[in-house]
Design a protein around this nucleic acid. Sequence first.
DNA 1: TTATATTGTAAAGTTTGCTTTACATTCTAA
DNA 2: TTAGAATGTAAAGCAAACTTTACAATATAA
Lengths: 64, 64
Amino acid sequence: MKNNIKELRNAIKLTQGDLAERIEVSRQTINAIEKGKFDPSLPTAFRLAAVFNCTIEELFIYES
Amino acid sequence: MKNNIKELRNAIKLTQGDLAERIEVSRQTINAIEKGKFDPSLPTAFRLAAVFNCTIEELFIYES
DNA sequence: TTATATTGTAAAGTTTGCTTTACATTCTAA
DNA sequence: TTAGAATGTAAAGCAAACTTTACAATATAA
């Protein structure tokens, strides 16, 4: 699953570390999600969408 | 995290087994999600929303 | 009432999301 | 150009999502 986190994060000038702190995950988790190494859990996806003030559907691109 | 799966599933007259087949998870997984035993993965949440023709935000109620 | 469908639940095992620690690489500003 | 900030990545370990098998409980229909 792809996502727009890196772009949106840069748009509001947050580092991976900042974002990690905000949603209470590790910096490595943010890095891994941005790089597509794994998908976030549903709660983590909700918190990410909240930071960027968008929907989960806007943030993640699901491909069956 | 709570959800409206059971209601929406009954509304379109699907059994837990039917729904499980449709999104390619086990029946026990559907049961566990409906009963709130655990949250689905993000891909599973996307597939569920697709079945009910709604958004993830409409299907799941996130409480911080 | 009885058969059958549906739902609930349990145990054991696999995979994946996430952590911590640690270090290497790439930016960016002085 | 060099220091420090930001990012990338790896390994070991834990917890949660999900599987299969199996059986018990509850609906529903004949």
